[in-house]
Write a protein that binds this DNA or RNA. Structure first.
Lengths: 200, 200
DNA sequence: TCCAACTCCAACGATGGCGTTGGAAATTAC
DNA sequence: GTAATTTCCAACGCCATCGTTGGAGTTGGA
């Protein structure tokens, strides 16, 4: 900080977390160094420890923040039909396109924690509301009930998330033909629609 | 080695690679130590460097090996219809269930290499044969052509792979209800069938 | 003006892991 | 039997990173 400036704890924390998201998403828990996070934020490393605890705790904090953001940004109101499912899938896809950190953080986490995960209870609640929305739409005969609601919701997220999970595979499978994010998005929406459409 | 035993280079290499698969799959490139691989194999660390180069090269070697195995174990002959697509998805799912290392290695790799990937050319070939099989079935009107072949093949793999990519999500979404690998498999097959079934 | 509390940071100790080396044990060639 | 070659390993140098500490700068209240 420059001399003469007032302390600004919140801003310091925000800058540290911002830098932490970038570093953790890029390099994972093990590949990230506390020193790099601090340097990128222009703050001393020691602040990380006093504010957030050790590296694992910082990772958990950062991921929880990002999950809250996506929960707020991509609501799932009412699934009036297969098109709404497709729209939801596309919204998830778009959010990840604009915030590629989230998927990567989730994947790093999934690879690390074989058993329980931090904040498991509240996160379970969150996912269950999504599942409940699918179940409701199934009961109302608005979407197909061939696949159990939990599985259907999960697989819709799979369609949206797989592009970011294994980008190397996406690239190689679409080798020569024009593979823009836009055609991917279209394919995703068609697929989601098909999954949710009741059998004729 | 015990005294009196003959040298057995190939066996040494095999044991090292076997241990490397386990360690890399569990902890990733950064989380794995060469010393632990060697200890688990009961071989000296130095052998890793003379046989396989540095840690990154060892990782690439090990992943290439596993990809060859899955390519041999899960063929994709002819997609005579939507049921064949479902069967293929299930075969991929089953293979991963028995060899959970492969998905994890792929995910670690995807997170590390943002650009090119080792062995990119031959792997592209491999994926393209899969895509070609889907394209062929589409031309013969055996499966739906609403979704481009490359995307369809990719999304079928998404359905099969997502369970292993984000197991924490799978667990949380299926919180109370009985979520056995078997019900997941059924949901997966139904979903794959729906994706591949032509519009009525 | 002085003091207590808070915010910050440069520097440090300790540890752990990468990749190497010098040499011992086993094998092969002659 | 001996020299050359190959397989193996214990021990090492080196460097990066974790998490801490002692102290300096800043603020607000009495």
């Amino acid at each position: 900080m420059l001399s003469g400036m007032a302390w600004n704890t919140d801003e310091t924390k925000r800058r540290l977390k911002e830098a932490a998201v970038v570093e953790f998403a890029a390099h994972g828990l093990d590949g990230t160094t506390m020193e790099r996070i601090a340097r990128q934020a222009g703050i001393n490393k020691e602040r990380l420890y006093t504010y957030f605890g050790d590296k694992a705790q910082l990772f958990a904090t950062v991921l929880a923040d990002e999950l809250n953001k996506v929960a707020a940004a991509v609501p799932l109101d009412n699934l009036y039909g297969p098109e709404a499912v497709a729209a939801y899938a596309a919204a998830v896809y778009d959010y990840h396109a604009e915030h590629p950190e989230l998927t990567r953080l989730l994947l790093w986490e999934g690879l690390h924690h074989l058993g329980e995960v931090p904040d498991e209870a509240s996160r379970t609640d969150y996912y269950r509301t999504k599942v409940a929305a699918f179940a409701e739409a199934q009961r109302a005969n608005l979407i197909s009930d061939e696949i159990p609601a939990a599985d259907l919701a999960f697989l819709v997220l799979a369609l949206a998330g797989w592009w970011y999970a294994v980008p190397q595979m996406a690239r190689m499978m679409h080798a020569d033909d024009a593979a823009t994010p836009d055609t991917a998005r279209q394919a995703l929406m068609r697929a989601a629609t098909k999954l949710a459409t009741p059998k004729a």
